[in-house]
Design a protein around this nucleic acid. Structure first.
Lengths: 337, 337
DNA sequence: TTGTATGCGTTATCAG
DNA sequence: CTGATAACGCATACAA
């Protein structure tokens, strides 16, 4: 039963025709007679012939494999982004190697090395928290492998990028909070290495300015994605002489920790502080007293568009391709009635 | 910059030695002189030489790639299992193709076909909800590709399998509920195709018997993972003439829906009904009134052990390998103080 | 110690 | 319409 798998040669030998004829017949090459095609295809079926991708890849000098690097898969946001990308890739005949950096620069470097050894035809990456230096990524660019940043992009690199329109999201959130009477609005933001942080900040600041609310930099705190730091950032805000009455957070995860912190440590105001995050995490529906709102992003579309852009770069390599910056809208979703 | 990548031939030509010498030198073959090795390695570095895995795979007739098929990645449990598997695979020089069936048999078949075309060296699979027939999987077995079922296994197939010891988990849960005075304990279970459902059921039933509690089959309901059905199953239990005072659920997701259903539709008893699920979902920490407990499983270890077993099967192919059944313990984690 | 020859499965090119 | 041949990058058995 488990003898070697059938190859084109086997088919050719059995049918006493040449391998190249078989190859063409299987792929419906116009130069092959209908009768021959039929015979070949029939036998191929009988032998459970499946073309050896390894050989094709080798021959074509193309791996038909794309790499996608994300910080982790515990975040539904990234999972959805991967799915959008993967679906698009599969539909176009590509495999996808999914890699998690776990927010480690070291690991990210190793992954890129593996991906390079695997001769991926293209790469989509959301850089790790630690990725301030991008030499390892630029190596890919030098090797001529198309790259698309997505979700997170280093602030000083001008490359193709697909991400949420977090700027508009922030201004919308601020506008909504102002409409509910808030004048002291806090921001818990993430690494300033990323454009996605800077854009949230700019949206927040411009949102305030649009409503003639003075910008107060003590109301802006930085955190990462650890519960510890999220709690600390929340405390710093709440211990201000004039604490905020509403907080916009970089992500729902951060918002949930802030929510928890308020409940445990600032119980007296916990219910009056209104919170908005990014992501519209589906788990929020299970909370008894949900936060105010979240900016619902479209990670699936982000993944899809990254794939579209990447394949375009692969199929139409142009030296001076102007860096594309694609922004996918996000929308305020209000939880409390 | 983006000219073709260096190959062994390039190095050989530059150094005016033969490709095979280069090949051996790079892999520290004992037959090569130290001086030559040095020269080769130095130049390889300079040229940023990375061995072409595609060629190696082709040559070796091995893909150094493993497949892992799971229902989806939205469930942290599967994500952790994938991670355990992946880490183990990477550490042993294998790549991993992660595939999601999205609980669709059709998609599962397509995925297996792709994996076969990619000549994966082995496969780990948690079958979809719809997978009652396993012909498509048996094809792999016939092709001589090692397979390990994990997490979910069809009830009528005797193959290698790694999963949680859900039987013991269920008896433990029942024992704990009994110790808290419960005599009417419900069970919301999943598809009876799976051993993992049957074992939960057996553990539940035997647990009751051990405590001289009569088994009442109306207390056992089946659901899938949709919120709709989870709500329905909960309603069916609560609308019994003599409803349960505690419910054991197939998964935390099911338990959370039951929790929600109770709160919304049976508010008067919502707080007295004690709930136990499987999975110890980390999001539970954010609930104000968490359920009673959850059986904490060890998905990472399950993934790891699946990898270990799979690699063993790949490296020591034995025709009459006795099917291994590996059970990873799970432990009751109590949330309410 | 080093080099030469061969083949893995497929496809592209060119000749018949 | 069909077939022969070469090539992709590497590893290996064998020859020198």
């Amino acid at each position: 039963m488990d003898h070697k798998r059938a190859t084109i040669k086997d088919i050719a030998a059995t049918l006493r025709i040449s391998p190249s004829t078989v190859s063409k017949a299987l792929r419906d090459h116009p130069n092959i007679g209908v009768v021959t095609k039929e015979r070949v295809k029939k036998l191929a079926q009988q032998l459970h012939f499946v073309p050896n991708q390894a050989a094709i890849r080798f021959k074509q000098q193309k791996s038909f494999t794309l790499g996608i690097v994300i910080p982790n898969m515990l975040d539904h946001f990234y999972v959805a982004a991967v799915e959008g990308f993967e679906r698009f890739a599969y539909d176009n005949g590509y495999n996808v190697l999914i890699c998690q950096s776990h927010e480690s620069l070291q690991r990210e470097k190793e992954l890129l090395c593996t991906l390079q050894a695997n001769r991926v035809d293209g790469l989509v990456i959301a850089i790790s928290r630690e990725t301030a230096d991008t030499t390892h990524i630029n190596e890919f660019v030098h090797a001529g492998i198309p790259i698309v940043y997505f979700i997170r992009k280093p602030i000083n690199e001008e490359y193709h990028c697909v991400c949420s329109d977090v700027y508009k999201g922030a201004t919308d959130a601020v506008a909504y909070l102002v409409s509910r009477g808030h004048l002291r609005i806090g921001l818990i933001n993430a690494s300033s290495f990323w454009t996605t942080s800077r854009d949230r900040f700019l949206g927040y600041r411009d949102g305030l300015i649009q409503h003639q609310i003075p910008f107060d930099k003590s109301l802006v705190q930085e955190s990462d994605f650890t519960q510890e730091h999220n709690f600390q950032a929340t405390r710093r805000l709440m211990q201000l002489p004039n604490p905020p009455t509403a907080i916009l957070s970089f992500k729902d995860q951060v918002m949930l920790d802030a929510h928890n912190c308020l409940r445990r440590e600032f119980a007296s105001n916990a219910d009056t502080i209104e919170l908005i995050g990014y992501g519209a995490n589906p788990m929020i529906q299970y909370l008894e007293r949900p936060p105010l709102a979240s900016l619902k992003e479209q990670p699936y579309e982000i993944g899809q568009k990254s794939g579209l852009l990447l394949l375009d770069l692969i199929n139409h390599p142009q030296p001076g391709y102007e860096p594309q910056l694609i922004k996918v809208p996000c929308e305020l979703q209000v939880f409390t009635a």
